[in-house]
Each structure stands twice: as structure tokens, then as C-alpha cells.
Design a protein around this nucleic acid. Structure first.
Lengths: 247, 247
DNA sequence: TTGAATTAGTGTAAAATTTACACGTTGATA
DNA sequence: TATCAACGTGTAAATTTTACACTAATTCAA
């Protein structure tokens, strides 16, 4: 309550949906509120935007303080500003989502203080988050579903070495669907973004899978070329082109 | 300057990129600033968000006051909050874009007072907008390019009756590309959203084109079904599915 | 009245992409 | 050494996308 006095009638915050991937599940890092409103409830990590701070910087700050990580993928999604979304006053929040490698996450003082914990996204529906955070999570998850079709997000979410099955499970978790193994592999390998490490898993009670890593070089080429929604250039000199109209 | 005193150190605004389509060009409604900063420069219409007003409502209000229109397509895109984006203080703005039928737009007192004028989007680059409005316009235009692939935006931007060539020009303007006439028609007509009015243009100095209108019924079915990014359901009972991974 | 100008309207074949689908392989373990 | 569990692989059909060029309808000017 005290903080609000510093922020006039309305306040400006960022909330961050931090996605990770582990044990076949897409997860989100939540904190447990230690004060009213919504004491004891799970919520998205977020904080006020300082007067001399850009929005993106604020989102990075929240992420860094909680996870110790920086230089990760972070994207603004939407703003949420319903008049009554915070019971104590007018609070407008800008929602971000970020993708991190869950194994890189270490318990920080902030994460302990805020009782941060990973939750499977699928389980959060029943949990019921504080404020309008269910809605924010939904919007960010939706956005991730879009982005996964354009950007190879595995690079951001998986450990350096991974199997194709792990990658497939990641896509299945994000898209909330089953994928055909052979078609998935065909597609992914045809993108030429993966390097076959010619190593195999160890210590699994079945045929061990090959390990792959992302080709960082090609990944960045990929992003700079084909991004910003490919309208394929025609081969003709005249520049006749054709659009999908519907993907 | 006086207004800022009412809004403490930081202020929240909405800015609205109002798109229209006319004479083969995608246009945007700009106002000419009558005061500092950026006096005389063109800018996006926008205004402060009132304390008791939702963000969307504020965006609608800006749109309504300027155009007299309501019940149009309006979508939030992003927030812009760089510390120095406004020379007089911290102003965080939420950007919206809306699609209107340019022929429905009537001069309002507000549009006269603010010297509102339609500009071809292509020409705005050279114009140079106030604040970071070039960036905002770019983000909204980009978003429109995405949305046009999923949602038949012609419904929002064209007059009730139109020719297929007009529709094609609209898509070409948005996608900034040329489309093949036959392929375009094939695609559009296969969507089954158009009604052939069995009328033709009049008063044109060439073969007159057929007129079409959107089938409002099917348009709404279309939006409720296939929207929110179609992951096609498999025909199998088991639920095996296949994604594009890359549109 | 005629032909020149201008835009409308139409189909097909090749290429590329997507989809559906099943079984032998490998290594661990009991 | 047999069983278990997940790995890894190819092909054919269906669908979608792409490339491409001429005739039709109307106005206008000679």
C-alpha cells in the first residue's frame, strides 16, 4: 500500500511471463504473493516501471532479479489497463513474455523471497492467478503459439544439446497438439538449423537418441532473412508475387 | 504544457493509427499539431487515458471524436514508453490501430480543429511524424500485414459493394506486393465469403466489373471458427496432428 | 462505324508442400 | 536371450501454390 503513495493515482508496471521447458512440459515461473491484495495467491512476476527506465529495461530488470538471467529472448505482448484490475488503484501493466533455459535458472534472493516456483502452464488454469494474470498468461501463451511458427524457439528454451524427440515435445507443448514424428523431423531437418553432434544419449533404458544443437550462425541468418513475415520474392524480374492470404 | 501538471510525472496516452483505403492507396488519418512540441508536424491522433477509463475505451474515444465512427475494428498493438519519447515528460502510450471505411468518415469539429487529413501510408515515410510516431505507425502497419493473412480485412476497409480488382488492390497495398490476378480471385472466391451481387460498375471507360459484397453471416462464422490461428484438427480419432512450424 | 484503348474475366499444368501411415533398430534390463 | 521402450526411417496421395496469356466488354475518338 505504501508504494502506491509514490505513484500518484495511477501506476505503471510490467508483468513478465517467463516460460521454460522441462520434463516435457511448458512451464511458467510464478511467485506467491506475500501481501494483500491476493495474499498467498500465485501471480506473474512484475514491478513498477521506474520514472527513468524504459519499458523493456523494466521487464529485463524483473527477469534478471528473479532468475539472474539476462540476454534472453523477451518480447512485449500487450498492455492491460482495465480500471478495476487492481483493487488498490489504477494500475496499467505492460505484459512481456520471455523464454529461458530452465536449467540456467538459479534460485536468487528475490526468487526465494517471492517464493518463485515453476508451474506447468497446463496446470495454471486450475490454480487461478492473482489480478487479471490468467488473462495475461493466456495472451502471452497465445503469442508464443504464433511465434513458434516463425521463429525456432527451441533455441531459446532447450539446453545446448537435445534430441529431436525433446524438440518435438517442446513444439507439442506449445502448440497443444500432437505432431507426427516423421513429418516433424523432415520439416525441422530441412530448415538446416540443427547440427548433428554425432553423440547419443547416455543412461536411458532404451535405444539412445542422437543429440543435436542449434547452428548459431544459421540461426541468426535465419532470423535476419526470413523474419518479419516472409512475402516470398518472385523469381521473375517483374516482381510478380503471390501471397497466402491465409497462411 | 498545462495538461501535464494534471498527470504527475508520467502520463498514459493512447495513440491510434486509423487506416482507410481509397483510390488504391492505404491511408492513415493524421492530425497536424497546433502546439509544441512538434508544432506544425503531423502526428497520430491520441489523447490521455482518463483515470476512470479503460484503455480500449480511450482508444475508441479518440477514434469517435475524430471520425464520428464507432463499432469499427480496433486492436491494441503495443506500448511505447521510452523515457525520452516525449520532450516534456514521461509519457507512455498504448498504440492501437483501427480499420474504417474512408467514405464513412465525416469531418467532425475535432477533425477540423486538429486539421486531420488522410495521407497515403507510403508517403508518410518522407513526411516524418512527431514524437516516435513513425515507429508506432510502422508497428501498426506491420501488425496489419499479419492480420490481413488471417482476417478478411476487406470487410472493414471497403465500401459495401466493391469489385474484385478493388479488393486485390487493397491486399496489394497492405502487403506491399503485386498479386497474380487469377490466383487471387481463385483464393478469395474459394473462401466463400463474397456474394456476387450480379451488378456491374457504371460509368467506367472500359469493361465494367462485377460488384461483390461480403457475406456478413459467413464472415462471422469465419471469424469464430478459423480464427486464433488454426491448428487443423486431425480427421483421425487418435488426434494425430500436424503443424506448419513455419506457416 | 470502326478500331483503339482499357480493364475484366477466365483455366490448366507443374512444382512445392503437407499429410497419412508402420516397422525394423538399438540398447538396457530382467 | 527375450522383453521392453523409445529411436529412426521413406513413400505415395492429397492439397496448395505458383506461373502464365488470351478473349470479352465497354468507352471514346477518329
Amino acid at each position: 500500500m505504501t508504494l502506491f503513495d509514490n505513484f500518484f493515482k495511477s501506476a505503471f508496471t510490467v508483468d513478465n511471463v517467463i516460460f521454460g521447458f522441462d520434463e516435457g512440459d511448458l512451464k511458467v515461473l510464478l511467485i506467491q504473493r506475500g501481501e494483500d491484495p491476493f495474499m498467498g495467491k500465485w501471480a506473474l512476476p512484475g514491478y513498477f516501471v521506474y520514472p527513468e527506465e524504459d519499458l523493456d529495461s523494466a521487464a529485463y530488470r524483473v527477469l534478471r532479479e528473479l532468475t539472474g538471467l539476462n540476454n534472453v529472448y523477451l518480447e512485449q505482448v500487450n498492455s492491460f489497463g482495465k480500471v478495476d484490475r487492481h483493487p488498490f488503484g489504477r494500475v496499467i501493466t505492460v505484459a512481456y513474455y520471455s523464454l529461458i533455459k530452465i536449467e540456467d535458472y538459479k534460485l536468487s534472493p528475490a526468487s526465494i523471497a517471492q517464493k518463485a516456483k515453476w508451474h506447468a502452464v497446463a496446470d495454471v488454469k486450475e490454480l487461478g492467478l492473482a489480478f487479471d494474470h490468467d488473462e495475461i498468461l493466456k495472451a502471452c501463451f497465445q503469442r508464443l503459439k504464433l511465434v513458434v511458427r516463425i521463429r525456432p524457439v527451441g533455441f531459446e528454451l532447450l539446453p545446448p544439446r537435445f534430441t529431436l524427440t525433446q524438440l518435438q515435445h517442446l513444439y507439442e507443448a506449445i502448440l497443444e497438439t500432437d505432431l507426427d514424428k516423421r513429418n516433424f523431423r523432415k520439416k525441422i531437418l530441412s530448415m538446416n538449423l540443427l547440427v548433428d553432434l554425432e553423440q547419443t544419449q547416455e543412461g536411458v533404458a532404451h535405444r539412445p537418441a542422437r543429440l543435436y544443437q542449434f547452428d548459431k550462425q544459421k540461426y541468426h541468418e535465419f532470423l535476419s532473412e526470413g523474419f518479419s513475415f516472409e512475402v516470398k520474392e518472385s523469381k521473375k524480374k517483374g516482381g510478380n508475387q503471390q501471397s497466402g492470404l491465409r497462411a
